[in-house]
Design a protein around this nucleic acid. Structure first.
Lengths: 342, 342
DNA sequence: TTAAGTAGTTGAAACGTTTAACCTAAAACA
DNA sequence: TGTTTTAGGTTAAACGTTTCAACTACTTAA
């Protein structure tokens, strides 16, 4: 069964292929109602589905959005087992499909397949999360497609950006602990790279401390990678080495899980002995025992918004001047923070 | 900057475009070492990247693997926030990229965009998980590409299949509880549809009971959907209505989390009062408090294997007779099951 | 010596669309 | 009446590859 082509449809409907193309693409005022109907019928009868490779070849559109996510350093797996990323991707996929796009997924590899992807495949746009390497951005600018960066603080007006106010989030988390009467507050965080999400949260932490006239103790900040295991180590360390600490701000929920386990391992109780607040509110946080108090960001919304921006541009419904959008943040109170105030 | 094409390369290297094409595709014995070198140089200098739309148009290959996953019924989001699926997808993506393929992701929508995807885009192959609708499979057979089904028990030799022995897994889990001295064992499970994964696990549960001459009590099986919330409800129900129950087999980890929370809510302790064993060993299970005892399946491996099968076929390295591969399963003992024996 | 390979090279015809340019007939206008 | 406009329709040239068939220039075999 050779695939049915536009030619077959044209033949069946007894019109030219141009007319068929016009009705497929909904071009106004090119084909009479009568013929249009005949064509639509033929399409249905023949089960005709246009070949996007061919279309893409001529109009340089692909109805394809590239989604690029980091990958773990050790083995080359995209970080899709991190629920934060997978939830965003889920959001992107859903919204993209709604808008008639498919998404194509790639981790950032040394071989630059992610880069080839963008040019080889005539991507219409791309969404990129959590990648920091400068070189990477330079590459990307060469491909002339709209690009949305999620959670990047790179200072380049070429890109659209979606962020939360991470500094404010760090501030909120820390202030929350302070308001609950905590004075010795540790921070467990991923590697602090300049202008990264994690640095902003760190800055917020310090601001809250300063504002409350609390002493900033550098030995209270434990900097590791964003993972359960590192949280675990940090939790133990805090429980052992800093018995005076009553509150911990973990700059990602996944770290918080580790911290809590580490504390529990050391024979202490969360939140009775030590309170913990996280960041992100991934779907597991509410399932954790005890349910995790955390800074909630609208994870799905990040994905939706990214697609919306892209689609607006692609539809020419917006002037193409990249801007930054900030999504809201709020504390969600659950069971891992205890108030020390009577 | 108009994109650089094969023509530019040919011109620069002073050869025909055919020759360029041959070296790009590594066709043996077509172009002399000397020219080949010149061409490779030109490619590098011009930063030439072949346009896959064009290539795809003529050779009907796309270097694209479709990945189709279920979506939640309520809103149209692919189940990517379910770590079981997102981990598999992660595995697929990593291995696919290694093999020179990109993946394109779609939930299963009513509008059948997933279907259009496969034909519109000249997919080379597809991997499908957890979809049951018959009609769906009939659609898919029409597109003549190799398809791997993950976790499907559909009885159709058209498809390749990757499974674990779910019946055995259910048996293993239940037997484990029995061996630990439990006699009244509840099952909390997703909707049992004929020939679904979940039914098999249910069957294994019954087999273990029978084998141990334990009475099968239908009121001990709580059938809901595969979600935390349903687990929660079930956990409470068990704690209240069936105080004699000491062991619960939750047929997915995500259910287990809910069950445990439900039990805890009711003032009982896991595992001291009630033991719980899950199924899957998603990455979060080891982070849970207490860490979840469960039936481990090699989730990433499922993804890898699926890609391997596809790639083998596409490389013609294997005769195209669909077969079923089964991946191993084992109990991983953590902290949610208590032994009742001495 | 001729015939038959063989290795290297190329021209050109696909592949299935989109779309600019052109054509026609009927309608509108002066 | 002739001229212009308009709506509807078609032709054919792209788009950037792959690959078949044809050709050349050598070898090698007989």
């Amino acid at each position: 069964m050779g695939k049915v082509t536009i030619r077959d449809v044209a033949e069946k409907a007894n019109v030219s292929i141009a007319s068929v193309s016009y009705v497929i693409n909904g071009v106004e005022g090119k084909v009479s109602e009568e013929k249009s109907k005949r064509i639509r019928e033929a399409i249905k009868e023949l089960n005709y589905i246009p070949n996007l490779s061919a279309a893409s070849l001529v109009n340089r559109k692909s109805k394809l959005i590239g989604v690029i996510i980091p990958q773990t350093e050790d083995y080359h797996q995209a970080v899709l087992d991190n629920p934060f990323y997978s939830q965003i991707v889920g959001g992107i996929e859903a919204r993209a499909r709604e808008c008639g796009y498919h998404i194509i997924l790639s981790g950032v590899d040394k071989g630059k397949m992610y880069f080839n992807m963008t040019t080889q495949r005539n991507l219409d746009g791309a969404i990129i999360m959590g990648v920091y390497r400068e070189e990477f951005y330079e590459d990307l600018k060469k491909v002339k497609i709209p690009i949305v960066l999620i959670d990047s603080y790179i200072n380049d007006t070429y890109f659209y950006r979606i962020n939360v106010d991470d500094e404010e989030g760090g501030y909120l988390a820390t202030k929350y602990l302070i308001e609950k009467g905590h004075k010795n507050i540790a921070l467990v965080t991923g590697t602090i790279r300049e202008d990264g999400v994690v640095e902003k949260r760190f800055l917020g932490y310090k601001r809250a401390l300063r504002e409350a006239s609390l002493f900033y103790n550098p030995s209270y900040v434990i900097e590791e990678s964003v993972s359960y295991e590192c949280g675990l180590k940090a939790g133990r360390e805090i429980a052992w080495k800093h018995p005076e600490v009553t509150g911990v701000f973990a700059s990602a929920d996944i770290i918080a899980f580790g911290v809590i386990q580490g504390i529990v391992d050391s024979g202490k109780i969360v939140p009775d002995d030590i309170s913990v607040i996280g960041f992100d509110d991934i779907s597991f946080s509410r399932m954790f025992i005890p349910p995790l108090t955390t800074i909630k960001q609208e994870i799905l919304e990040k994905g939706y918004k990214a697609v919306d921006i892209l689609v607006d541009i692609l539809n020419g419904e917006v002037d193409d001047t990249p801007e930054k959008t900030a999504l809201p943040l709020k504390v969600v109170e659950r069971k891992t923070v205890k108030s020390l105030i009577d």
